[in-house]
Nucleic acid binder design. Structure first.
Lengths: 148, 148
DNA sequence: CTGATAGGTCAACGTTATTGACGTACTCTA
DNA sequence: TAGAGTACGTCAATAACGTTGACCTATCAG
């Protein structure tokens, strides 16, 4: 399939992905754990902040989990005053999620940590590394193997 | 902290990481699920293949989980004939893990899928993308936030 | 012989996810 | 306006995978 040298390189890349992702998530994971929250809470905050007024269904599609799995974290965030759930004005079956000031603050704390880490990392990796890294990740996202 | 344009870029990079990693792991996850195995089994096979004769303790350090958590997947792999556990010749307290032909075959199947995906992706992302991507990931691994 | 090391194992528990079934509120269409 | 479809909530059972804590055996080193 691949010659031995190429295989060595690609295997090294696979390991890099594993360890790199772990290093990347370690930071916010610790901050979240202090509040009794997990990665799903972080993701919800991220996507609700990005798309204010996101519906439950749209969030379900993005995250690729079941509504039962989403229910708890959503309720946690609501009861902690980090998001607000309100029916859509036009179609009252649809629930729209909005981030509160508190939610925005927590999201900023988590995201700042990751942004600083990425910014430093891109700088250390040299000229053009950021664009190339993004290009690889974008190409991966576009791949049909993504379960979304 | 960051100016708005920079923040937009870094937030996009964070999302890329999330979706990219998911696309990357989706393929082997499906193959593993067919055999009733999970990511931990894959990781064990990967590291035992790479470092033949790896000890339990060394594997524990790499994976960053408890011995109780490692115990099941190790036993699963052994009972399915994918790895062999044997005491070290010099220090019989130490158990050395070895991959079998069957284990090597499964590992190859999983890894081939990921190698092909990465190879395609690097090619699509253009000249120099692979080296730059690796540089970013290596820099991330070297970061003290890695819990290992 | 003694203390340290490597590892195995039992038990209880927690988190996060799943599938399946069913209920409620609401909208849209014939 | 009745009935079908949609969006979402929720109960229940189950599973995968991890944790902490405690305790055990086997082995090695001084």
């Amino acid at each position: 399939m691949f010659d031995p040298n190429r295989e060595r390189e690609l295997r090294a890349a696979i390991e890099d992905f594993f360890f790199g992702y772990r290093a990347f998530t370690a930071l916010p994971d610790r901050l979240l754990a202090e509040r009794g929250l997990g990665r799903t809470h972080h993701r919800i905050l991220h996507f609700v902040r990005r798309d204010d007024g996101l519906s439950i269904g749209a969030l379900l599609d993005i995250l690729g989990i079941t509504k039962q799995a989403l229910h708890r974290p959503i309720k946690d965030l609501e009861s902690q005053g980090l998001i607000v759930i309100a029916p859509d004005a036009a179609d009252r079956r649809v629930r729209r999620l909005t981030i509160t000031d508190g939610g925005r603050a927590l999201e900023a704390e988590l995201t700042d940590a990751q942004m600083r880490l990425l910014d430093d990392t891109f700088r250390q990796a040299g000229e053009g590394a950021e664009a190339a890294w993004r290009a690889v990740m974008d190409s991966l996202r576009a791949n049909p193997s993504d379960p979304r």
